[in-house]
Amino acid sequence: MSQRPVGRLILLPILSMATIPMLVSAHVDPTKFTPSAFVEKPAVVECNLEDGSSAQCYKFTVAYQPEGLEIGPFCPSNIDEKGGIWDWDGEKAGLYRLDRDFFEMLADQGYRFYDKDGRIVISDPGSGQPPEADHTCLMATPDKDVTITMLLPIEPRMAEKALSLGTVAKVGVALDGVPIFADAPSVLDTGHLPALDVCGGHIDPGGWYHWHATSTDIATVEKTEGVAVNCALAQDATAAFGFAFDGFPMFGSLEADGSKPEGLDKCHGHMGETRLGKTYHYHASTEFPNLPTCLSGVVAENNFSTTSSTGIGSQGNARRGPGQGMPPGFEEAAQILGVSTEDLMNALKGNGQRPNIAAAAEKLGVTEKALRSALPQPPQHAR
């Protein structure tokens, strides 16, 4: 069975700015967003980029979910209903609708998500309680009070090396204000299925909605994968979807004139004319997940935070000083495992200096391999 990368950032070689002398950058433009996307007027702030340089960033604050956005379905209540979708990466890999055929296929492979009466076992990853069963369909509860703040460089800069996007890594923000994240955690790693709706999104344990796909071009993916679903969003393979966290725009799988993009790099981006001007930009792929696999530009430090008490970017996980708060990478690990950050930290606490991984995995209801894979690697010390 195939394994997905864990949510860590890896540096990959890419063309530097110096190698693209004719680059003209279409800067991040708040006027391109849906007027109702923001709960506060976008502000220009000073920010630090991850290459050590300083810049100006737009500060965007959005709600837990755009007003009027139709989301769902996610987990069906039983195997005779149709839920959302899932990109299965085990035997018979591919994009599937969450229905009887899919769940019976998983059961044949040792992943049974329903009881003897055909009812789907559902758990809420934001409840603070680990799943009681070995295999559950994850469906978080929305929190209408949560807001999300994001920082995007106003003037994008190409990086010396591309930033790889592993599981649940931050990709960008859509034009309606919905955050965009990389591939969702694999069932093979956690045993649990964080169901996506028919537009490729779901609710974070922190209570806010986000996408794991270019949802305005998901019809192209469905056609390629042979899955019939009906995303309520208007579909346009040539349209702008949003801006990546490095400030470069993201488009559907086709150019503005309807042609297929040429000369795409490893991040699925290239230089060219767009509806936003001449700039480096990303294109959606035709297979799921149809997002960039890496970012070619430099992102801002601390570019994502929420008012939630749990989940990625939550205030409760902010480091409060040396030896206090949430260690770096633990938010992402909790998201990958489908548990709360509090449960992850509590499970890893022990009497000794080193946690008992096997005991912690049992307490969390995940495999020891999944826990080790999700946890951030310790820093390498010079000898």
Rank of each mutant, 00 (worst) to 15 (best):
P73L: 12
P73D: 09
P73R: 11
P73A: 10
P73I: 14
F74D: 07
F74M: 11
C75D: 03
C75E: 05
S77R: 15
N78F: 13
N78D: 15
I79R: 09
D80E: 13
K82Q: 09
K82A: 10
G83N: 00
G84D: 09
I85Q: 09
I85C: 05
I85V: 15
W86A: 03
W88T: 00
D89V: 10
G90F: 08
G90H: 09
E91H: 07
K92M: 11
K92E: 13
A93M: 05
A93Q: 11
G94R: 11
G94Q: 06
L95S: 03
L95N: 03
Y96I: 06
R97M: 08
L98C: 11
D99R: 11
R100K: 15
D101P: 00
D101M: 01
D101S: 13
D101G: 02
F102M: 05
F102Q: 01
F102R: 03
F102T: 07
E104S: 02
E104N: 08
L106F: 06
L106T: 12
A107K: 15
A107Q: 09
D108L: 11
D108I: 04
Q109W: 08
Q109M: 09
Q109C: 09
G110D: 04
Y111P: 02
Y111M: 09
Y111E: 01
R112Q: 13
R112K: 15
Y114E: 08
D115N: 14
D115L: 08
K116F: 12
K116M: 12
D117M: 10
R119C: 10
I120Y: 07
I120G: 02
V121I: 15
V121C: 06
V121F: 04
V121Q: 14
D124L: 10
D124R: 02
P125R: 04
P125I: 06
P125G: 03
P125M: 02
P125Y: 10
S127K: 01
S127M: 03
G128Y: 05
G128E: 04
G128Q: 02
G128I: 02
Q129H: 10
P130Y: 07
P130E: 01
P130T: 13
P130G: 03
P131K: 03
P131Q: 02
P131T: 05
E132M: 08
A133E: 15
H135K: 01
H135E: 02
C137R: 07
M139V: 14
A140V: 09
A140H: 01
T141Q: 13
P142I: 11
P142H: 12
P142A: 12
D143E: 14
K144W: 00
K144F: 02
K144R: 13
D145F: 06
V146H: 04
V146N: 06
T147H: 02
T147P: 01
I148K: 06
I148A: 11
L151Q: 00
L152S: 04
L152I: 14
P153E: 08
P153T: 05
E155K: 13
P156G: 09
P156N: 12
R157P: 04
R157D: 03
A159R: 07
A159S: 12
A159V: 06
E160N: 12
E160H: 08
E160Q: 10
A162V: 07
A162G: 14
L163V: 07
S164H: 12
G166E: 10
G166L: 07
G166Y: 06
T167D: 09
T167Y: 01
V168H: 12
V168M: 15
V168D: 15
V168P: 00
